[in-house]
């Protein structure tokens, strides 16, 4: 056997790959589930906080800023570990899946709140005044005039941040979630062969590469020029 053959046999072993393909595919499903949950709840919560913040209620805003700062400062893995290994001491035992989901959703909430807020505040005061002078209420102005312009500005930074945080689903491995990396790791230790890991790596590329390329396009397209 040549070195090349041995390499292929180790890292791309057909038999092992075939055997563990279902596990990896199931991991892909879990990763997608997690990703969708994180993106939906994280962005919704971030937007909600940004809208709340625009009401300019002092103590509430301090609280929002603190929460946002907190989840921007803490490494996501620390939050996940704290939830999964820490909360059970307080008689709350979230599963690894729930811990990963909530932790990353909080992180996305924090980052997206900051981006949404920057977008809202960057809209010129004249837009508010014009709308209010025609009788639109605060909420109507925010929803119909300010937010549509702000959202457009936030698309590039938001997509990049969302991708970066969604990739964090791999951290679920640490708390025993059988997402792609988790499934691949346990398959590797069961088979004493790194082929499942290579499959896992390929799966991540298949999932995320199109998103990254799409984000690059969006960035070009929404570069804001008037």
């Amino acid at each position: 056997m040549t070195t090349w053959d041995r390499f292929l046999d180790t890292f791309f072993n057909g038999k092992v790959m075939l055997k563990y393909l279902p596990d990896i595919l199931w991991g892909v499903v879990v990763t997608i589930e997690l990703a969708i949950l994180i993106v939906l709840s994280g962005l919704a919560a971030g937007l909600a906080l940004a809208l709340l913040r625009s009401l300019a209620i002092r103590p509430l805003n301090w609280l929002i800023i603190f929460i946002v700062d907190l989840f921007r400062s803490l490494p996501p893995l620390v939050i996940i570990v704290l939830m999964y290994f820490g909360l059970p001491y307080a008689e709350v035992s979230p599963s690894g899946f729930v811990s990963t989901w909530l932790s990353l959703a909080f992180v996305l909430m924090a980052f997206s709140e900051e981006i949404f807020w920057a977008g809202i505040t960057s809209i010129h005061k004249g837009q508010w005044e014009a709308a209010r002078s025609t009788g639109l209420s605060f909420g109507e102005t925010l929803m119909n005039v300010v937010l549509p312009q702000a959202l457009r500005l936030t698309i590039p930074p938001l997509t990049n941040r969302t991708i970066a945080i969604t990739k964090g689903t791999a951290l679920g491995t640490v708390v025993a979630v059988s997402e792609i990396l988790g499934a691949a790791s346990s398959a590797m230790s069961n088979s004493y062969n790194p082929s499942p890991l290579m499959m896992g790596a390929a799966a991540y590329l298949v999932l995320f590469l199109p998103v990254v390329v799409l984000a690059r396009r969006l960035e070009r397209r929404f570069a804001w020029k008037r």
Binding site: H124, G126, Q127, E129, A130, A131, R132, S133, T134, G135, L136, N144, V145, P148, Q149, R152, R226
Partner: peptide, 27 residues
Amino acid sequence: ARRRIGMVFQSFNLYPHMTALGNVTLA
């Protein structure tokens, strides 16, 4: 009350994400 008081600004303050008709019909 403001609906009955039109205001025109030095810098127009049109909504850039809407058409001319959209600007006029929003309120």
